[in-house]
Simulated scan of single mutants.
Amino acid sequence: MMTTMNKALVEIFLPAADQSFDVYIPLESQMSEVLLLVSSLLSDISDGKYKANGNAVLCDATTGIIYNINMAVAELGIQNGSKLMLI
């Protein structure tokens, strides 16, 4: 059984598909790894509206500030309920 203690449930808005998705992301992972996982996942579940191309960035959906991919998710202050945007 998988525990969600070390994960955060975040909402990721995907402008390319004009949809939001709720996704669990691991808090201790580097943002660069999470970015790869999330772009690939959203590419799969957006019915082709979004294509993962390796150039994506994750940013704070409210402020537009781009997250540093060299930091761990937890270090960036991301937590349950955070709203992110994949562009």
Rank of each mutant, 00 (worst) to 15 (best):
M31A: 11
G54Q: 04
A8W: 09
A16K: 15
I12D: 10
E75N: 14
A16L: 15
I87E: 02
N68T: 08
V38R: 08
S39N: 00
I12V: 15
E33T: 04
M71W: 13
F13C: 09
S29F: 11
N80P: 03
V23I: 14
S82F: 01
M2R: 11
T63I: 06
G48R: 10
G64E: 03
S39W: 00
N70G: 15
N6E: 09
K83V: 08
A61R: 13
Q19T: 13
N53P: 01
D44V: 12
N80A: 03
A56T: 08
A17T: 12
G77D: 09
P26T: 02
N80L: 04
T3I: 02
M71D: 15
D18K: 13
V23E: 07
I87A: 10
N68V: 06
T3A: 04
D44W: 10
I12W: 12
A17W: 13
L36Q: 07
D22N: 05
S82E: 04
L86N: 11
V10Q: 03
D22S: 06
G81T: 05
Y67V: 06
Y50W: 14
G54D: 05
D44E: 15
L58M: 11
S46D: 02
V73L: 08
T3C: 00
F13H: 14
A74V: 12
G77P: 06
N6M: 01
A61F: 10
